[in-house]
Design a protein around this nucleic acid. Structure first.
Lengths: 213, 213
DNA sequence: GCATCCCAGATTGCACACAATCCGCTAGCC
DNA sequence: GGCTAGCGGATTGTGTGCAATCTGGGATGC
């Protein structure tokens, strides 16, 4: 099951299964050399996560979203991540501060790297970014919030082709990461929250502009 | 599947399956005169919703929560409902204002009713309350937010025995409902948001006090 | 006495078969 | 010509058997 879930999920997030496409159990089962049973369970799980939409007796399709839907989703994510930052400001532990600093340093290093393959640099940046947000979330120590955020963050990925980060945008993100880090470490919950909200909403604007253009 | 899901869920929320209790597929299947297959799917769905926790090859148990977990959950709910109120202030439509007013009027009527069986009154109040919050959520026009909220709101129910509402508390809720309604209708998003957050956090305090006492 | 190994029972994970349902299409009727 | 009823293929929903895995307890060795 776990394997079916992970594989189908990856296929959706990477865009191999496109929005709107029907996900026929038998076909997927054959594709992954499994029976329908684990495929069904994976589809139910993906439905609960919102990546897939399904109706009784009619099966599942990869969920399609309008730009408005995506924009709303980012708005929700902004709320959730802002709350995570707020909690983190009160709950973060020293070793998590170290993790956060390390991830921010990696982001900085990747940003300054003008020798490696740009594709690798993009990957490094994306990874450091994930670690930064992940550490804030872990510091919030709120399992359920983490769960909801994981799901909310991944959905839009299926609508973004893998794309290079614009330099100015990336530097702005870096700045925000540092400000957010400082607010959290200083225990200033309301500023941490506001900065994180703004940071995510900036991301929304960039995505929307990209999709409209 | 749908029937298995609904039945198991109800059993958990009503407390017939207690927190910590193992949910053995075969046993539940027999109890509802089904095979294990729909039961399995229902358990997976409940797991995704957070009502149930399960580990590979070890099965599912009704999720247990500490007071801290519940308190955190209410904090999350406060964020989400506040966001719903914020969006509703910008998006509500005339017929939804009518629905909201009708639900608030029902709440008022139930509150003034000192003749009916107190248990019926409590049920009426709980129902009006659900409609008020449901209408705000509908007015927010944000499917995903609605989904997340449904799940976040129901979980604590399994930890509350059905209880009478304290009169002062109920009147305070009624007041907040009216203030929230006015802010939404006036299009004042930030006040609607702040009021809703406070309203939910009051609910948290009451629940926590109740569980500790 | 204590730790370790191993076995038996219980339970979940998966495959497969059959039943129920849905959708598109054709034939028949008005 | 257009509309409705009904048929057949495709797909999902459910039941069941077997394999894989975990748990607890007892026997064995130190």
């Amino acid at each position: 099951m776990t394997t079916a879930y992970a594989q189908i999920r990856q296929a959706i997030v990477e865009g191999r299964y496109q929005p709107g496409q029907r996900l026929i159990e038998q076909r997927i089962a054959e594709e992954f050399a499994l029976s329908r049973t684990p495929v069904r369970e994976a589809l139910r799980r993906l439905e609960a996560e919102g990546l897939v939409h399904s109706e009784p007796n009619r099966g599942a399709v990869v969920r399609d979203m309008t730009i408005e839907d995506l924009s709303d989703l980012y708005g929700l994510r902004a709320q959730l991540e802002a709350y995570a930052a707020e909690l983190a400001a009160a709950r973060i532990e020293p070793h998590q501060v170290e993790e956060l600093d390390a991830a921010i340093a990696d982001f900085d290093r990747a940003l300054a790297d003008d020798e490696s393959d740009p594709l690798d640099v993009t990957r490094l940046i994306a990874d450091a970014n994930r670690r930064i947000h992940g550490t804030v979330l872990a510091a919030a120590r709120h399992d359920r919030l983490g769960q909801l955020l994981d799901r909310t963050v991944d959905v839009p990925l299926s609508f973004q082709a893998f794309r290079q980060f614009d330099r100015a945008e990336t530097e702005r993100s870096h700045l925000f990461h540092q400000l957010i880090r400082d607010a959290i470490v200083a225990g200033d919950a309301s500023r941490a929250s506001a900065l994180m909200r703004e940071h995510v909403l900036q991301g929304r604007d960039v995505l929307v502009a990209h999709l409209e253009g």
